[in-house]
């Protein structure tokens, strides 16, 4: 069996003079859960619409398991399960009728269509609402119907546009759990503007802004780009005095005091935590809190997408 792959080759999409996606090239392989991150209007959805065959690229192309999305669109679409943004569905249909329609469109005939729909209903826990018209369901259920529709043919490639947008925390947790469950044998591409989501489900993240790929890294790698990475934050009494002592440490590059929190940044290649905690003990400072910072994803995101340094 050949390795599953998505291969985007210099994908471009222009709307008149507006460049929505600009020379996007990347590869994704089995087992990867790729998160498209970016501000609104960055080109995430447009890229997904091109990968799924909804929009034709202005130039460039992509291969889904070797099927070209431009010249062999139907074969490419057969490999893909897609949840469009907002999880649209035919509101007047019942959940069961809708899923059976999608199953038949996916090539299941007769009894097999019913079975495929039934399996998807079970997987998404929709048993309680199968006979209800979709328009009468809550947002969370609608999203689950959309997800059920996307996995009905057990696709090798799953493309989900903002799968948890507008869901409550429990529903978000459920959807993420489902995505992680399926990740091993598939390629999953999700788009999101939620940084926590990348952290929760993705093992690779691409930051896109103005249609261009800015960063392609693991979530951990992204966090490590934060200036807070490996910094130490304390909450102490008399922070000014403590700050002046800590800034004398050879391992510290800089000390910042913000809203009662004192953050010590390490000099390049230095580990701070042990040194700081030793210093605290020696001076018998009253410390309410002492923690090692992993990094701040939101700060990295801002820095990359706006070239801003906080």
């Amino acid at each position: 069996m050949s390795e599953l792959r998505i291969e985007a080759r210099q994908l471009c999409k222009n709307y008149g003079s507006l460049v929505a996606v600009d020379q996007l090239s990347f590869e994704v392989g089995t087992g990867e859960v790729l998160g498209f991150l970016g501000p609104n209007g960055a080109g995430k959805s447009t890229t997904m619409k091109m990968l799924t065959g909804f929009l034709a690229p202005s130039s460039g192309t992509a291969l889904i398991n070797g099927h070209d999305i431009v010249t062999d669109s139907l074969a490419a679409r057969r490999c893909i399960g897609y949840l469009p943004e907002g999880a649209p569905s035919y509101g007047e249909m019942t959940v069961r009728a809708f899923l059976e329609f999608v199953a038949r469109a996916r090539g299941f005939a007769g009894k097999r269509a019913l079975n495929a729909a039934g399996a998807a209903i079970e997987r998404l826990n929709l048993q309680g609402v199968v006979e209800q018209p979709i328009e009468t369901l809550s947002k969370g259920f609608k999203r689950r119907v959309g997800l059920a529709q996307s996995i009905i043919h057990d696709p090798q490639v799953l493309i989900l546009d903002e799968p948890t947008d507008g869901l409550d925390p429990n529903q978000k947790h459920e959807v993420r759990h489902l995505i992680r469950d399926m990740a091993e044998e598939k390629i999953i591409v999700i788009s999101t503007h939620l940084l926590e989501e990348v952290h929760a489900v993705c093992n690779r993240a691409m930051i896109i802004a103005d249609g261009r790929l800015l960063v392609d890294d693991t979530p951990a790698g992204l966090i490590a780009r934060s200036r807070y990475h490996d910094a130490v934050t304390l909450v102490v009494e008399q922070p000014e005095r403590v700050a002046s002592v800590l800034s004398e440490l050879p391992q510290a590059r800089k000390v910042e005091l913000r809203e009662g929190e004192l953050t010590v940044f390490p000099a390049p290649g230095q580990r701070l935590f042990e040194v700081v905690s030793d210093t605290v003990r020696e001076n018998r400072w009253a410390v309410a809190e002492l923690r090692l910072e992993a990094g701040r994803l939101d700060e990295v995101f801002r820095q990359i997408t706006r070239g801003e340094v906080s």
Binding site: K49, T52, G53, R77, R78, Y82, P84, P88, S89, Q149
Partner: peptide, 9 residues
């Protein structure tokens, strides 16, 4: 739903 319909095979 057009996006759904036209991304089906």
């Amino acid at each position: 739903t057009i996006e759904l319909l036209l991304t089906l095979p």
